[in-house]
Design a protein around this nucleic acid. Structure first.
Lengths: 110, 110
DNA sequence: TATCATGCCTCGAAAATCGAGGTAACGGAG
DNA sequence: CTCCGTTACCTCGATTTTCGAGGCATGATA
């Protein structure tokens, strides 16, 4: 069932933070952008997306504000806070550290 | 609290399979090897290790057999099955696919 | 004798993702 | 005008996993 979706664990926050680092975006647009950027390799379900957004809002990494989309619809824009920017930096470092360690195990010749 | 441990999600199985691909090893030794190989970057707690081992045994990716360690103690040796070897191959491909996709989002310039 | 490392195991708590469901508004096709 | 696909928000429960803390036993070392 779960293809490689379980790997997303703990990475979703980082992906969202990074996406918002380019500028404010609304929820649906974030998922869209990640999916497009990765050629559909990463699909963020809404059942994962919105809870993640609330989680990060509670932690003050992002802030929400209602506004109008280009097409005139009411949408909620999320913006990175300075704490979120710091957090992103930390998570990027952790991701690098982690994947480096995993690669040592997975791809080292014997 | 959880530093980057959450990132381990879904990766633990792959790490164990890979470790066993070098030859049979007992549980404690698996955790030890991973920890040593990554210079303590990856620490596998026993509360994670043994459940993972049972999980994979149920799925017939690994097989267990009691034996004697070099020091003469009773230990349980785990060995990769052919299904486990196939699974490892699949998971390695997924890992590569996944990290490539994530990197596109996390490290692409704008 | 006491302590440490090895080595097995189990349990409950905590966290996250997922699928499926619900609501609503817009635009275009028929 | 109506239907449908897309956008866009949200919620819930089920499932899975990892983790920490605990327990038990042995052998070596001090």
């Amino acid at each position: 069932m779960a293809e490689e979706t379980e790997l997303l664990h703990g990475t979703l926050d980082t992906l969202i933070l990074k996406t918002l680092s380019w500028g404010p975006r609304h929820g649906y647009g974030i998922a869209r952008w990640i999916q497009d950027t990765t050629d559909d390799a990463l699909e963020i379900g809404e059942g994962s997306l919105y809870p993640a957004l609330y989680r990060m809002e509670r932690k003050r990494w992002i802030e929400a504000e209602w506004g109008k989309s280009e097409t005139g619809r009411d949408v909620k824009f999320y913006r990175l806070t300075s704490a979120g920017r710091a957090r992103l930096k930390l998570e990027l470092a952790q991701w690098t550290h982690f994947t480096t360690a995993v690669s040592k195990v997975l791809f080292e010749e014997h």
